[in-house]
């Protein structure tokens, strides 16, 4: 087995694959990270699914259905990338997500009640996710990097569709503009918290970076996101709330005052103890349990492939 020292030494982009005998610490850290990512795809899709029906036109409905479909596809890719580490199966991860042990992004614990909130997820949160995902194409776990190739390929549609919805709302009636501004004020701090706590408060950061799983720090990602998306928000006529305070540096880039954010709420959410999030978790759990019978039906008596023994000569 490769020792941890060697792992850290070799930890370049796409360096490790299932052919490598990696130490438990690496495999567990990678599983935790990819499982979190996969769970977030599922819970994000679960949060957005009512808006397939509530989309205000057939074209929007098509786009929204396609977007939610893509997120489930991303979950499929990511669970497989996680599974290939040999720590947990997809079924175990989905069961953990159902029973409240699986962790996922803070933003998907909040209720999403109106169409005006949709671009907060579909544009800002997806934009933030894409910023991070683009860096993960260089992660050291090859199956994860390969999954990111496909995810990034599709995700541009999601972000642009989300932006299109925002644009429509912000060029719509005064009422629409006001409702959208209110939704933005509510969601803005959560969006900033997407990247997690500052590097010195992040528990898993050091190890994940040292073995090449994580490619950029929370702070760098957050700052890069702000530089890109504050001008976008302003362009559509959204006013950036006073809190959290955001400093504009001399070079036109931005940094946020971390202490202005509600980290107690963030860590309550991180423990899956936030009430609306629990509702989402349990709602999905019911849906998963309701189709247990189908999975049992298709798994029973299902040979691995055609039932043919590939080892034997024939």
């Amino acid at each position: 087995m490769m020792d941890l020292g060697t792992v850290k030494e070799r930890a370049g982009p796409r360096e490790f694959s299932p052919a490598d005998d990696l130490p438990r610490e690496y495999r567990e850290a990678a599983t935790r990270m990819i499982e979190f990512h996969a769970n977030s795809e599922i819970m994000g899709a679960y949060l957005e699914r009512p808006f397939i029906r509530q989309s205000p036109s057939i074209d929007r409905k098509l786009a929204f259905s396609a977007k939610v479909q893509d997120e489930i596809g991303h979950g499929q890719l990511l669970y497989r990338a996680a599974e290939s580490l040999g720590v947990k199966t997809r079924e175990e991860m989905l069961d953990d997500l159902a029973n409240g042990d699986g962790k996922f992004l803070n933003c998907f614990h909040y209720p999403l009640e109106s169409w005006v909130e949709v671009p907060m997820i579909s544009f800002f949160v997806d934009g933030a996710a894409m910023r991070r995902q683009a860096t993960l194409r260089r992660t050291s776990w090859e199956p994860y990097a390969h999954a990111m190739d496909k995810v990034c390929f599709e995700e541009g549609f999601h972000v642009k569709h989300g932006e299109d919805i925002l644009k429509e709302l912000m060029t719509g009636s005064r009422k629409e503009q006001q409702m959208t501004q209110e939704a933005f004020e509510e969601w803005w701090p959560r969006i900033i918290q997407f990247f997690g706590p500052t590097d010195d408060k992040s528990t898993h950061h050091d190890f994940a970076s040292s073995v090449g799983l994580k490619q950029q720090s929370n702070d760098d990602l957050r700052n890069a996101f702000l530089d890109q998306y504050i001008p976008k928000a302003r362009k559509y006529g959204l006013e950036i709330p006073d809190e959290p305070r955001i400093r504009e540096r001399d070079d036109g880039t931005y940094a946020v005052e971390e202490d202005d954010l509600d980290w107690d709420e963030f860590f309550t959410i991180a423990k899956n103890e936030y009430e609306p999030g629990l509702g989402q978790i349990n709602g999905r759990k019911h849906a998963q349990e309701a189709v247990d019978w189908v999975r049992e039906t298709i798994e029973r008596d299902t040979p691995a492939a055609s039932g043919h023994e590939p080892q034997a000569a024939d």
């Binding site: 599922i42 899709a45 679960y46 699914r49 397939i52 029906r53 409905k61 259905s65 396609a66 939610v68 479909q69 489930i72 596809g73 979950g75 499929q76 669970y79 999905r284 849906a287 309701a290 189709v291 189908v294 999975r295 298709i298």
Partner: peptide, 20 residues
């Protein structure tokens, strides 16, 4: 579309979303 994010497996979820 009611089956989206509620189908028996991730794969069947994608397939029914396609049909929708």
């Amino acid at each position: 579309t009611e089956w989206q994010v509620r189908a028996p497996t991730l794969e069947s979820d994608l397939a029914l979303a396609n049909n929708a």
